[in-house]
Design a protein around this nucleic acid. Structure first.
Length: 457
DNA sequence: AACAACGCCAACCGCGGGAGA
DNA sequence: CTCTCCCGCGGTTGGCGTTGT
């Protein structure tokens, strides 16, 4: 993109009303791409242009931005006018740097919403989504550079305490299993599902309904277990806003469930049948995985990355990433994930030493993996509903009955008849992480967990 | 003083959803 | 139902000011 710097120095375009009058009145209904018109200007707005736009909007209000362009004679497309008004000319805008309170709120909101800038802006009067987005990107870079956690501990603690008070007594896995298996409406606002919305006001922008994108499942699950804020935080960190075709679970549900639920753009829907691959929206991703072509390594790297500066984040991050991995089908060569932060590879030897405790028999050789696997197993064992759900989705024998061989399938299309030839859109898929065999579980891996501050447990 | 690196931020782009013809 | 148009969102770019060397 090349911005014409010289344009900012140009004179304010002449607002020739005669020129406007000569135009076809229907021109506004023709696609701008096909509409022959004046060469529209790009680049910074001049004070004169601002004045014209401001005067027009104050007089006529905000209706059709393309008409604004037409009526004022501004050589700006309607889109540009809207942006200029929304980000700079609106009278209710608050100028200046963010206050500490606003910064804390942004951090907190981001941990809950991900990169939903417009929704976050709705919580910050006078602030625009663009401002918040810029702030966050700057903050993210700064944190990356300085190897500091992007979510400060004090704010996490505060949010965690709030979550303790706000979270409902609700088992996500139970709810999800029930809904998927029995066709209950996930969008029933009167259901306990609404308990996930720990701050309804935060969702006033759009959702009366919770953000139930598939990527939220791990966080929702952890929250349901009162694991608290950090798990959400790390879940948001280890997952990337992305789109993933999801024919596998689609097939699984079509084969196993009644199909009354669907994921639309990653969200549950009770009204549409499942057809075709799912488009999964993942929450924002601050710390990326290592190999964009190999999702199966992702959880480990994410966990290690989360470990880079705040050991307290490690366990929950590992668990969250593992949880997601375990529940997901891994597209080979998805390329959806970014390169890791340098910090992801810079786990200190001291921390590695600490983490290696109890992981000597880790099947994958990674201390992180050991804890991930055992923690995951522990959760699954503790929660029969989740266990059943995962096993149902993967069309595998129940966890505690399946042998590792039965569970390990690298090519999903051949692993189960459920995912057979009726899925023409299914590329090669594999389970990124396999449910560990019960015999592989090690209680000593939880020594890290118990060593964590209580707020993270 | 000159240059490079960095940070901030305004503005652009593409995309998707909703509304209406 | 399809098409067109508009709006809004999120991601990205690049200019410019500031800071560091």
């Amino acid at each position: 993109m090349t911005r014409a710097k010289s344009e900012s120095d140009q004179e304010m375009p002449a607002l020739d009303q005669a020129d406007l009058a000569s135009r076809d009145d229907d021109s506004a209904r023709v696609s701008p791409r096909r509409r022959p018109g004046p060469q529209l200007k790009k680049g910074p707005w001049t004070p004169a242009e601002d004045a014209v736009l401001e005067a027009y909007v104050k007089k006529h209000g905000v209706q059709n931005w393309n008409v604004v362009q037409k009526d004022t004679g501004l050589l700006r497309c309607g889109k540009s006018c809207r942006l200029r008004w929304a980000n700079h000319l609106r009278p209710d805008l608050k100028k200046g740097t963010f206050t500490k309170e606003e910064e804390n709120l942004i951090i907190k909101l981001h941990s809950k919403m991900g990169n939903k800038w417009a929704r976050m802006a709705a919580r910050l009067p006078g602030r625009t989504d663009n401002e918040i987005k810029n702030y966050w990107n700057t903050r993210r870079k700064k944190c990356q550079r300085t190897s500091t956690p992007i979510y400060p501990a004090d704010i996490c603690l505060q949010a965690s305490n709030e979550d303790q008070h706000e979270s409902a007594d609700f088992s996500f896995s139970e709810k999800l299993a029930n809904d998927l298996l029995h066709g209950n409406g996930l969008y029933d606002p009167s259901s306990t599902w609404g308990g996930f919305i720990d701050d309804q006001e935060a969702l006033s922008y759009a959702p009366q309904l919770p953000d139930v994108s598939f990527s939220n499942l791990p966080a929702l699950y952890f929250e349901s277990k009162n694991y608290g804020f950090m798990d959400q935080v790390n879940q948001a960190e280890v997952l990337k806003e992305s789109e993933i075709s999801f024919p596998l679970l689609n097939a699984a549900i079509n084969g196993t469930f009644d199909g009354s639920h669907a994921f639309s753009n990653g969200n549950f829907s009770t009204s549409r049948p499942i057809t075709g691959p799912w488009k999964i929206e993942l929450p924002s991703f601050q710390y990326a995985g290592s190999d964009p072509n190999n999702w199966s390594t992702y959880g480990t790297c994410a966990a290690q990355g989360a470990n880079f500066a705040d050991p307290c984040m490690h366990s929950s991050a590992a668990m969250a990433s593992a949880k997601f991995e375990h529940m997901c089908v891994v597209p080979r060569n998805s390329g959806q994930f970014e390169e890791p932060l340098p910090e992801a590879h810079a786990v200190s030897s001291a921390e590695n030493q600490q983490l290696s405790v109890g992981s000597s028999s880790a099947s994958t050789g990674s201390p992180c993996d050991a804890m991930v696997e055992t923690s995951e197993l522990h959760l699954l064992e503790q929660d029969p509903n989740l266990n059943a759900l995962v096993n149902s989705c993967f069309s595998a024998p129940p966890l505690c009955q399946a042998s590792p061989d039965e569970l390990q399938c690298s090519d999903f299309s051949s692993a189960s008849p459920v995912f057979g030839s009726d899925e023409p859109t299914v590329p090669q898929y594999e389970i990124g992480y396999l449910l560990p065999h019960p015999e592989d579980s090690r209680t000593d891996a939880f020594s890290h967990w118990s060593a964590m501050p209580s707020v993270f447990q």
